[in-house]
Each structure stands twice: as C-alpha cells, then as structure tokens.
C-alpha cells in the first residue's frame, strides 16, 4: 500500500521544481498575453478615445474600420507582402541551403555573408534600402551613370509597385535565417538516405523533392511560424522605408493600429483594428494547429 502511494504521488506535485520554476512564465502568459488580449477585445467595442473608457457602442468601430480606404489598402498590402514573402523566403532559403549543402569550399564564409543582414534591425534595413532604391542616389542613379540614360527603377516612388520595394528589403533581411534553419534541417537528414537514393539511381532533384523535403517537415513548420509572425507584425520596415507612402500605397495593418491608437487619440479604433489582426491570425493558425496537433493525439 505504502509503496504504491510513493510510486504514484499526487500528479500536482510531480516534478514540483519544474512547476515552480515555470510559474512566472505561466503568470506572464496568462496575465500579459491572454489578459491583455481580452482587455483589448473588450475595449474595441467602446468609443474610447485618448483614455480607455467603458462606453459600449457595439460594432461601430468595426463598421468604420471596414469602410476606411486606408485599412482596406493595408489589408491588401499585407496579403500581397505576406504571400510573396512566404513563398520567396522559403524558396530562396531552401535553394541557398541546398547549394551550401553541396560540400563547397568556404561554406562558413558564405553562410556568414548570407546570414549577416539578419543581424540588422528592420529600421536599419529599411533605411539602407530606402537609399538603395532612391532614384537620385541608388540603383537607378548607378545604372544611369553607366550609360543607360533611360533606365527607370524607383519602386518606392511608384504607388503600384511600392509594396514590392518593401518586399525586396524584407527578403534581403530574412532569407538568411530561413537558409540557416533549412541547412540545419538538411544536415539532420541521415547520410544513408542519400546513399540509398544514389544506389537506386534517383536523380538529385528528385531525392530533394520527394524524400528530403517530406522528411524535413518539422523544420518547415518551425520556419513557417517564424516567417508568418514576422509578416503579420511588419511595421518598422515600412516606417523606415516609406512611412506608408506614397499616399497610403504601402500602409500595413500594424501601422494603422499604431497611428489610430496614439496619433489620432482613438483607442477604440486602434483596438478594433488590432482585434481584426488577431482574428486573421487565428483563422490561419487554429485550423492548422487542429490538424497538426489534434491529429497527433489521435495517433498517439
């Protein structure tokens, strides 16, 4: 009897040290993240201006949000930037990793060079690319000075393509990290798999596409989460590069939230916008998490 009890203690006190150690983090997560989120959602239904006030106005803030041209433009920009940034950073990152994986000389040097932009903040990245893309000092000026007088490349000053100018800077900064994650994933693939594939006479690209990539699934999931969270909260890059201009052609949701909360002294509107951002993320994340983790439980 006694031995039985000592073998199966109360589950609450199992690993007590670890549980005590994680209390601060649990507390932070509950109060700061969950609590703050609930607070924001609640106040998004009020007409709070400079200071939060509990004066409920129903869905007014949301109605106004979705009739505001600037918000619509922000969402469109986020969709364009998000989709392309996801595709290109995964594609370029994987290609670079696969190239580095060919046992080339000076691999360390190349890896460092490619990862280096990631060490810069978005503000610095934004400023550097603002200059590079400035028609009077940057790429356009350089090519014209080489003799191509009519060469035009000024994405930051053209409303229809300004978001691609920002995409270039975002990719330059973020691809290095994706490459490193991918390279780590590639190195995690057992050498024997490659040998087996070679013995079977499978060409290299097929090995990558049908054997290695499916095996790297966890790495892809991690990378996806990192890239996606970076996309949704994009703010500083836009501020540094264009401040949302020309017009509001490069506005993004996070900037709308900031501007309305602080500059326009309209907390309710800012909260409504940030709740919409949260909702967008949930729509993507919840079904995916359900498939990913819900499925595993059933298998387990």
């Amino acid at each position: 009897m006694a031995t039985d009890a000592s073998r199966r203690p109360n589950s609450l006190f199992r690993n007590l040290n670890a549980k005590i150690a994680s209390i601060p983090m649990i507390f932070t997560a509950l109060v700061v993240f969950v609590g703050g989120t609930i607070w924001t959602v609640v106040y998004s239904f009020t007409n709070s201006r400079l200071l939060p006030r509990l004066n409920f106005v129903g869905l007014d803030q949301y109605e106004r949000l979705w009739t505001t041209p600037r918000w619509i433009a922000s969402i469109q920009n986020l969709l364009i930037y998000g989709t392309l940034s996801l595709i290109f950073s995964l594609l370029i990152g994987f290609l670079l990793a696969a190239l580095l994986d060919q046992k080339i000389r000076f691999e360390n040097t190349f890896r460092t060079i490619i990862l280096y932009p990631f060490a810069l903040s978005f503000i610095v990245t934004g400023l550097v690319w603002q200059w590079l893309l400035n028609p009077d000092f940057g790429v356009q000026h350089f090519v014209r000075s080489l003799g191509w007088e009519t060469f035009t490349f000024n994405p930051l000053y053209d409303q229809s393509i300004v978001i691609y100018g920002i995409l270039i800077a975002g990719l330059w900064q973020g691809t290095g990290l994706v490459m490193c994650l991918m390279l780590a994933g590639l190195r995690g693939i057992d050498e024997d798999i490659w040998k087996a594939a070679r013995v079977d006479g499978i060409p290299m690209w097929k090995t990558y596409l049908f054997i290695v990539i499916p095996m790297m699934r966890p790495v892809f999931v991690t990378t996806l989460v990192i890239i996606a969270s970076g996309i949704v909260r994009i703010y500083d890059l836009v501020v540094a590069q264009t401040s949302g201009g020309p017009g509001f052609a490069s506005e993004v949701p996070a900037k709308y939230v900031y501007d309305y909360m602080f500059s326009a002294q309209n907390l309710g509107q800012g909260f409504a916008a940030s709740t919409m951002m949260l909702l967008t993320v949930m729509i993507v994340v919840v079904p995916w998490a359900y498939l990913e983790f819900g499925g595993r439980n059933k298998r387990g």
Binding site: R49, T68, F248, D259, Y260, S263, A264, Q265
Partner: peptide, 15 residues
C-alpha cells in the same frame, strides 16, 4: 478632434 484630423490627413495624403 485629433481623430477627425487624422482621417483628413489620410485622405489628403492619398489625394
């Protein structure tokens, strides 16, 4: 209010 001014700013920046 600053809110209205900001909305006007958004409009005229675009315009």
């Amino acid at each position: 209010t600053e809110d209205t001014n900001n909305q006007l700013n958004d409009l005229f920046v675009a315009f």
